[in-house]
Design a protein around this nucleic acid. Sequence first.
DNA 1: ATCGGTGCAAATTATTTGCATGAAT
DNA 2: ATTCATGCAAATAATTTGCACCGAT
Lengths: 141, 141
Amino acid sequence: MATVSEQLRFHGIHPSRQRVAIGEYVLQTEEHPSAERVLEEARKQLPSVSQATVYNTLNLFVEKGLLKALQLEPGHTVFDPHVGPHHHFIDDDSGHIHDIPWTAVNVQGTEDLADFEIDEVQIIFRGRRKAPTSATEKRLD
Amino acid sequence: MATVSEQLRFHGIHPSRQRVAIGEYVLQTEEHPSAERVLEEARKQLPSVSQATVYNTLNLFVEKGLLKALQLEPGHTVFDPHVGPHHHFIDDDSGHIHDIPWTAVNVQGTEDLADFEIDEVQIIFRGRRKAPTSATEKRLD
DNA sequence: ATCGGTGCAAATTATTTGCATGAAT
DNA sequence: ATTCATGCAAATAATTTGCACCGAT
């Protein structure tokens, strides 16, 4: 996928200037930004863009499958362009959110939830990041 | 624990009329209510109570360990008096939230997250409830 | 009368709505 | 010129703050 414009068009979204400015940040970031943070970054490209447009665009991207909205902390919705299944680790010291690969963990026992048809499983780990000590360090930032 | 008043006092909270009215609902419900829903129920006991007091009281209860705040769906904080570790299943048809006992499932592979000190693990399952069919039916409402 | 605790009106923050403008035919 | 899409100001919803009041000393 070469450009953000192409990516938008491919998902049936007209690539207006505002959407491209927003997408160039939010579709490529690893930082799990809030709507407010997205506005701040989008304005570096297009200073006139409004917060309302940012919200509407983020909602559009979510609807079209380009983003996921995550509600991990009270009153603080964040967006994640990594739309495939994965989990999250929240560092309670720094507030940073790290993606945990889907394959890193395995949930046992779901067969006991026989009365439920499970469409999605999402694990939220909370804690703190230790000083990276060894070869176990992986790119989970 | 006999009365809500006693429960509040035990946790170092002065049992004012407002707090008791709020607590009598929110500390005993299984329905994972929003702040708005708590106001509605509290007003059945004490019609003059304000939404601000409900928010402040819910925050106080969370702080004192009587409630947990859960961010399960974007823009919708709910409260749960079941403060021990457990998981949640969200029925996307009805919107109902079911508690899943901590012991019902097991997460494998956390040893690979060696650089993180894990304080809390919380699994959110989403899907739909099937018609209860058999002896596997358990009280998970 | 003083002081810490309490409740709520008002303020703030987060998000959505509805309409004015612009692009496409 | 009509229609549909787009962006944003204004409206609404969610939550927090700060101060007036009350009860205990």
